[in-house]
């Protein structure tokens, strides 16, 4: 990788951000909107992996599940329970949408942990689209389902009348900050973890600290596996919370 190549030339150099560069797959040219890039490749692999688990894994439709089917059923159960617990029974209509988000993020995070992989969820452009789509969908659902009542979300009736306008301003701001925090949280976690692993890997070029660096990389990697799942879970659960707000806007 770039880090090792550079490490030979100078004594020690870190390029922890190189792993995030978007490159065309087949040419050296500029990146147009249609150019197949490493992003395209890994998006394709994510779709493939999800298909493998959810479709190929369950092709037996066995009453007594195989390993793959068990995992697919566990994922189904996890997200299904999340949606019905948080958003309520009427939220189950949007279960496929939430499930798609969860499977996409969880596979993006886990595939990104493979060596030499590209982590699509480490890009603001990707998480931004995901978060914005949640934001727009949820807002649309809120207005379609509740009409003007959706604005009750910002009008806190349990608070004294005098401070309600102040709260309304705060609520509106927090509502519009949602997609930002929603996307930055996921991308930030992915960037930080992968960059830290790369920095530790860079230290491995110095013989004296190499064992420590390698142990640190292993530790970070284990931690990142945890983070990969937790961030997917958090993104999904927040989506459910926003969905709940849209379906039942009164506080």
């Amino acid at each position: 990788m770039a880090t090792e190549a550079q490490g030979e030339a100078t004594d020690l150099s870190f390029h922890p951000m190189d792993q995030f560069i978007v490159r065309p797959l087949f040419s050296d040219g500029p990146v147009h909107w249609y150019t197949p890039t490493n992003v395209t490749l890994w998006l394709f692999l994510i779709v493939l992996a999800t298909l493998g688990l959810l479709v190929l894994g369950t092709r037996g439709r066995a009453i007594v599940p195989t390993r793959g089917q068990s995992i697919a059923e566990m994922a189904y159960g996890l997200v299904h329970k999340m949606v019905s617990d948080i958003a309520g029974k009427d939220g189950l209509k949007y279960f496929p949408y939430v499930m798609t988000l969860f499977m996409f993020i969880v596979f993006a995070n886990f595939l990104g942990l493979l060596p030499m992989a590209f982590t699509v969820t480490s890009h603001i452009a990707v998480t931004g689209v995901l978060a914005l789509s949640v934001f727009l969908t949820v807002t649309a659902i809120g207005f379609i389902k509740n009409g003007a009542h959706f604005l009750d979300l910002f009008w806190v009736r349990s608070a004294p009348l005098a401070i309600r306008p102040v709260l309304a301003v705060i609520e509106v701001i927090s509502y519009f900050v949602r997609p930002v925090s929603h996307s930055i949280r996921l991308a930030g976690n992915m960037i930080a973890g992968h960059a830290v692993i790369k920095v530790f890997a860079g230290f491995a070029a110095i013989a004296a600290v190499a064992p420590v660096a390698i142990v640190a990389v292993v530790g970070m990697y284990a931690f990142e596996i945890l983070v990969a799942f937790i961030q997917a879970y958090v993104f999904t659960i927040l989506t459910c919370v926003y969905l709940k707000d849209a379906l039942h806007p009164s506080h």
Partner: peptide
């Protein structure tokens, strides 16, 4: 532009497969 274009395509494909094939099947099995 590139990332968003490919992301939307993969999300649409993924959504279609999950909603039309995977979830009905798993739901039926369960």
């Amino acid at each position: 532009g590139n990332q968003i274009f490919w992301l939307i395509i993969s999300l649409l494909v993924l959504y279609w497969v999950v909603a039309k094939i995977a979830l009905p099947r798993i739901g039926a099995v369960l």
